[in-house]
Computed example of a mutant assay.
Amino acid sequence: MLDLSGTPVWCVGGGEMAAAKVGPMIDAGAQVTLISPEVHELLQERVAEIIPREYQTGDIKPSNQPALVVAASDVREVNAQVKADADALGLWCLRIDQAGDMSLPARVPVDDLTVAVATGVPALTARLSAHLAHDIDPKWAEAAEVLRELRRDVDVRKALSALPQSERAANWRLTVDAALDGENDRFALLRILTGLEY
């Protein structure tokens, strides 16, 4: 789970697999530069910049300040070179044609809740993701929404900081249980979480 808002990402390759990998990054706010002579229609208007040619060693360099490189060419040798170039610069590289030093899990979004799935076998991951998308009870997303608000609340954090760590952890478990049991009254959850009356 990375915050890619405004983050420079360089992608080599503009086909269907590139669209599948960088599309969610663009949705998350990444600024994608694409190097490819052909660009999938799903990426045409969405990337920050298109360099319409084949990849050349030296395209990715520190002055471009990429945080992440995606090797998504249809040519294995090109992907290998992109990976080698990224490694030489100490950059994370997602290589789509083989396992590498990073991978992207499948995402199962349910409202504001996201479940990530990875199995090491793409076909199994896709099948499990589809299964989970139908079987996740909406109560999980509802609980996530109300609990996230509590966690971000400055006054709640201040009240919790006065408690010993073991008590904080126990109170969070009780609060999560209550939210999953359908308790969505903010003040009731605050009383469980902090032990204070509201």
Score class of each variant (00 low, 15 high):
2 L>W: 06
4 L>S: 12
6 G>W: 08
7 T>M: 14
9 V>T: 04
10 W>C: 11
13 G>H: 05
17 M>H: 03
18 A>E: 08
20 A>D: 10
27 D>C: 00
32 V>R: 07
33 T>M: 11
35 I>R: 10
36 S>N: 03
41 E>C: 04
42 L>M: 10
43 L>E: 09
44 Q>R: 15
45 E>F: 06
45 E>D: 15
53 R>G: 08
54 E>M: 09
54 E>Q: 13
55 Y>P: 08
55 Y>W: 13
56 Q>W: 00
59 D>R: 06
60 I>R: 09
61 K>E: 14
64 N>Q: 15
66 P>E: 10
70 V>T: 05
72 A>D: 11
75 V>F: 05
75 V>Q: 12
76 R>F: 00
78 V>C: 06
79 N>W: 04
79 N>G: 05
79 N>S: 07
80 A>T: 12
80 A>F: 01
82 V>F: 10
82 V>G: 01
84 A>L: 13
87 D>W: 00
88 A>Q: 11
88 A>H: 09
88 A>D: 11
89 L>R: 12
98 Q>S: 14
100 G>S: 03
101 D>S: 14
102 M>G: 08
103 S>Y: 14
103 S>M: 13
105 P>S: 05
109 P>I: 10
110 V>I: 15
113 L>R: 02
113 L>P: 12
114 T>G: 08
115 V>E: 02
115 V>R: 04
117 V>R: 05
118 A>P: 07
122 P>G: 00
127 R>I: 00
128 L>R: 07
133 A>I: 06
134 H>L: 14
137 D>V: 01
143 A>S: 10
146 V>M: 04
146 V>W: 06
153 D>Q: 01
158 K>W: 11
162 A>M: 11
165 Q>H: 10
166 S>Y: 03
168 R>E: 04
168 R>D: 00
169 A>V: 13
169 A>W: 10
171 N>P: 07
173 R>G: 03
174 L>A: 15
176 V>F: 12
178 A>R: 07
179 A>Q: 01
181 D>Y: 00
182 G>L: 05
184 N>G: 11
185 D>I: 01
189 L>D: 10
191 R>E: 15
192 I>Q: 05
192 I>R: 13
